[in-house]
Design a binder for these strands. Sequence first.
DNA 1: CCTGTGACATAAG
DNA 2: CCTTATGCCACAG
Length: 113
Amino acid sequence: MKPENKNFFQKVYEVAQLIPYGRVTSYGAIAKYLGAARSARMVGWAMNGSHSMEDVPAHRVVNKAGLLTGKHHFDGTNLMQQLLESEGIEVIDHQIQNLEKHFWDPFKELPAD
DNA sequence: CCTGTGACATAAG
DNA sequence: CCTTATGCCACAG
């Protein structure tokens, strides 16, 4: 029984916190980085608990298409979009523009270890 | 141990 | 564009 499993949520939070300003990533990318590529849903679910964490920029986590699928969990209807736009990310119709440009790949940015 | 669940991903109609 | 369906997996009860 490896401790990594138990730290799954924790890792999700850590990676989310590591997302730099003005950058975004996908649930799948995080999940894959955590070693559970098929647990992308778990990542989102973990974000459910992110509200307990102050430094978890859940708004910087979107789906693979760059759609703000998780915006429903935010207070308003366009809060998430506003947050992203506030960081210099162009968002149209709940979809991030130039996603590749703003995309933050944990594999690429974080040490492979 | 079993069941429900979920902010995904992918495919099909 | 939309909805429906399946897989997938970790966690909560």
